[in-house]
Design a protein around this nucleic acid. Structure first.
Lengths: 334, 334
DNA sequence: GTGAAAGCGCTAACAA
DNA sequence: TTGTTAGCGCTTTCAC
């Protein structure tokens, strides 16, 4: 098996031209005569030749690879992002080297990316030590933190306006006539949770309200379900809950309906965050805040490419607008 | 920016050893003295050196890269697969080069993979021309069709026993006392749909029943919803529906409940296929057949690695057992 | 426009 | 164990 790889030299021999002529034929803006090109492509087809991208990268210093690190794909927000990001990069001539982050040692993964000479790095829901982030910078490799940011980090970030999104929800729930508005947090150390929560409190305060009760769901469905049970075990049960993302909100809705036998939104309104595909599914019909995935991807790719090309090197923090999407899981303002 | 890359020669200079000594230090089972190794690692740390994986691959002929092609990620079955596959390959020392397939030209994507010298290819819900499949084989690059197979293809395949799964459902629905059992197909050209449908009919026949009505959902939610509307527009409405995968089944359930205002399973039982995470969510609680994701991934990785190592070269078609998972969306057999 | 030649950063014989 | 020497397959000057 494994018949020896066909190299440009083989093609050159068959086409009776120099090896460089073959290379030129397969290089975008190179200068080759019509005739040479023809002979080369003919020979190449015959032999089934394709240039070795690794060898090409080695000499050109451009691998055409973008490293993408993601922590988990069970929250549908991330698959959607991966798909769009991947398609966008592909259409721009880049390829995606995908890594699932190992909770323990995310730096090791990025080291691995670096060895593969990635030209840029996207970190979605994953953490990078400032030391490594700095090393990427030093090597001129742009890093984009997707859907999170770290103030002290030299990396770029792309997020949506989570503070504003939280604020919209705070306003909306008070306007809806709710009196005991509660919050189920995500992972408390994350910038998304901090911002959504801060904005939410601000939105409540603007209407003279405060948060009735609070619990933590850590962005997992199990923890979120448990958090919901805790909130409803209190003597004063919530009549509205803002859950820090849709993924948790689905679990919360299931508990409310199937375990507590309460009606949504009759007894309690539920609002999520992200607008993942399932939010619009009939069984949930979840009011939420849309993260503008398309725009976030576009911004990510633009930052990456600008910095790869050296057009711009300074750190950027793109914050895209969030939008409240009202559906049937919540009472409407009068 | 972009300070010149640190090479093994730089490290060698600083450590006052030969460049090969540096190479050996970073090569698994090479023979280096304790002292040399120490001096090299010290110098390497100082300079922040990591071997260039591309150069290494070029000479060793092993890129450590597996190409993965997937058509879409909105059906949660695939994100789950990607995550597991990626983690499994990472733990075995491989990396994943991920491509979203362009409906038009999937061959182009595989060509690109080949240029990057992938050592293996996984195709999930994507199609490869037999010509290219043959070329991969010729180059000794194993290809695994994941969750589908093509009889005439020289590629390996990993599927679950879709015929048996369909049969179990056919039996189950007749045993549940249903009298008008219908089917909503997926993409009719796919092996998964063909097998599930054939098994289903067989399962019905074993109990002396036949399919009441049939429509096509093409594995998309929009088409599936439309298919459901068609089936229920008939004078004799179904009292049970087998939908060829969970992803479509959710849309069908939404139509049944929210548009037709029928009760599940009171008025109609619904059964899906795949057991994606959402199937167990409270709002759907969908009876389905589990595809053994874990086992399918394990088989995929095993085939890949065996054939990369040359341990085994012959084509393999792994078919893993399917299991009926009974939940609340269907009436139970008496 | 074309070929010869020099290397990209590394590994793998080969002697020493 | 170590250094020296060839390349891996390719792009890119450099003369012609």
């Amino acid at each position: 098996m494994a018949k020896p790889t066909v190299t440009s030299a083989d093609v050159a021999r068959l086409a009776r031209v120099s090896q460089s002529a073959v290379s030129r034929t397969f290089t975008a803006g190179a200068s080759v005569s019509q005739e040479t090109r023809l002979r080369v492509t003919k020979a190449a087809d015959e032999l089934g030749y394709r240039p070795n991208a690794l060898a090409r990268s080695l000499i050109s210093g451009k691998s055409g690879i973008i490293g993408v690190l993601v922590a988990y794909l069970d929250n549908q927000f991330y698959p959607v992002v991966i798909e769009k990001l991947s398609r966008s990069l592909q259409s721009k001539g880049y390829r995606v080297l995908l890594f699932m982050s190992d909770p323990g040692d995310q730096d090791a993964v990025v080291q691995d990316m670096l060895q593969y000479q990635v030209e840029g790095v996207v970190m979605a829901s994953a953490h990078l030590s400032s030391h490594l982030a700095q090393r990427c910078m030093d090597n001129g490799i742009p890093v984009v933190l997707f859907n999170r940011y770290v103030i002290s980090s030299p990396s770029n970030s792309v997020t949506s306006d989570n503070v504003e999104g939280g604020r919209l929800i705070g306003n909306f729930l008070v306007d809806g006539g709710h009196e005991r508005i509660s919050f189920i947090a995500g992972y408390e150390d994350s910038s998304t949770n901090r911002d959504r929560e801060a904005g939410f409190y601000k939105g409540l305060a603007e209407r003279g309200a405060v948060c009735h009760s609070r619990s933590v769901g850590a962005y997992t469905q199990e923890a979120a379900a448990a958090a919901a049970r805790v909130l409803f075990a209190a003597p004063e049960k919530p009549d509205a809950i803002f859950v820090a993302n849709d993924h948790m909100a689905f679990a919360v809705m299931d508990v409310i309906r199937n375990e507590l036998h309460l009606n949504i939104p009759g007894d309690v309104s539920v609002v999520g965050y992200d607008d993942v595909p399932q939010a619009s599914w009939g069984a949930y019909d979840l009011t939420t805040v849309e993260q503008p995935g398309e725009a976030m991807i576009d911004a990510t790719v633009e930052i990456l490419i600008d910095q790869i090309d050296g057009t711009s090197a300074k750190r950027r923090a793109a914050v895209l607008p969030a939008r409240l999407i009202v559906r049937g899981s919540s009472k409407l303002p009068k």
